[in-house]
Amino acid sequence: MKMALVHDYLTQKGGAERVFELLCRQFPDADIYTSLYSPEDTIDVGERPVYTTKLQAIPGASKNFRLLAPFYFPAFEALDLKKYDLIISSTTSFAKSVIKRPDAYHVCFCHNITRFLWDTHTYIDQYRRYKALMPIIEPVFQKLRQIDLTHAQKPDLYISNSTVVAERIQQIYKQPAITVNYPIDINQFEFSDQKEDFYLVSSRLLGYKRVDIVIEAFNWLGWPLIITGDGPERERLELAALSNISFLGHVSDEQRRSLMARAKAVIVTALEDYGLVPIEANASGTPVVAYGAGGVLDTQIPGKTGVFFYRQSPEALYRAMLKANNIQWNYRQIREHVLQNFTEDVFFKKVLTIIEENYGEYRGVA
């Protein structure tokens, strides 16, 4: 069986790319396709060649990939994938639009519906430099929404990372999705039951991440807080923070791993479609204080692995921090939660069973 792996673009190293990296490792003989590839800025796919679209030839495309939105659908359609029996796409937007043979099978790992089309104003708020382009963007997006709906009918099977995303796929694309919570590489995190006197935020500093809530709550608490990650909000956040709050910017994987293991808790204030950070914290034996909506509802057990707050406000987080501080956490139990539910072995056992059952049924051999 000839297999292809397809991802939207390999120009960054976010959660979707980390999942695609796992797929590449699980299927070492599969060919890899993407629209744009910047190897120095993204995941390690080993020695295999990465086949790209014609967009790769555009100067500066990898750095300004978001501006090419109208061109991705035809670029993916132009890829010649006729020789493949099984296509696995990994997408939040465009890779689902590839064309297969009529007798081939297309499994789509859908990390979300196309957010910039279906939740445009929230998306633009994250990238404020694009706000001035809204009068131009909106008419284009109206057309792209219809194109997106058409391409969303191409996959034979959708696998979503969370129940929230599965509901969106059903609501917008009118397609059923099987939810399989995405894993982490457990070997990349170290366990410690010796927690130190600080709390941790590990996040890109974007508006929707709502790190401003953490700043204000910790200004009141006066507790030590370390923030890792960078982004356009950093300067504003630093100006609002008191001396108990430290900004480290981008840190190495080793330093991040150490901070995760030693922190009293990791704080997540964004509404995430899924979110790997809470699972990574739990893998380190560290509880999570999280906004109780979205993906964390699939991954956290209140009172066992974390504490939820239900309004994105400093007051709600403040109360949640006091509650978390009074819980006698079982750090080994927190890590065991990940070992039982979110390892690569658990993930691929579920995924391979789903693919075999559905692919076999599709070919009339089940």
Results as ranks from 00 to 15, higher is better:
95 A>K: 02
66 R>T: 15
104 A>Q: 07
72 Y>T: 00
61 A>G: 06
94 F>Q: 02
72 Y>W: 00
113 I>H: 05
89 S>R: 02
88 I>L: 12
68 L>G: 05
80 D>L: 07
112 N>K: 05
73 F>M: 12
76 F>G: 04
60 G>F: 00
77 E>P: 05
100 K>R: 14
77 E>F: 05
86 L>K: 15
108 C>L: 10
62 S>H: 03
56 Q>F: 00
90 S>Y: 03
96 K>G: 02
103 D>L: 11
96 K>H: 02
64 N>M: 06
78 A>F: 04
74 P>C: 11
98 V>E: 05
98 V>R: 03
64 N>Q: 09
93 S>M: 12
75 A>R: 00
111 H>K: 07
91 T>G: 03
101 R>S: 15
89 S>I: 11
63 K>L: 12
61 A>P: 06
109 F>S: 07
78 A>N: 13
102 P>F: 10
94 F>M: 01
109 F>Y: 14
108 C>K: 06
97 S>R: 04
61 A>M: 03
107 V>H: 01
108 C>A: 15
97 S>A: 15
95 A>W: 00
56 Q>V: 03
64 N>L: 04
98 V>P: 05
76 F>R: 03
113 I>Y: 06
102 P>D: 15
114 T>K: 01
67 L>G: 09
106 H>D: 07
91 T>F: 00
70 P>A: 01
98 V>Q: 04
111 H>W: 06
105 Y>Q: 09
88 I>G: 07
103 D>G: 11
97 S>M: 10
69 A>Q: 02
104 A>R: 03
71 F>C: 03
65 F>T: 12
84 Y>E: 06
72 Y>L: 00
91 T>Q: 02
96 K>I: 06
101 R>W: 04
79 L>R: 08
94 F>C: 08
70 P>I: 04
98 V>D: 05
113 I>D: 07
91 T>L: 01
107 V>M: 04
105 Y>E: 08
95 A>R: 03
94 F>I: 05
97 S>V: 12
90 S>K: 03
60 G>K: 00
113 I>F: 08
76 F>D: 09
114 T>R: 01
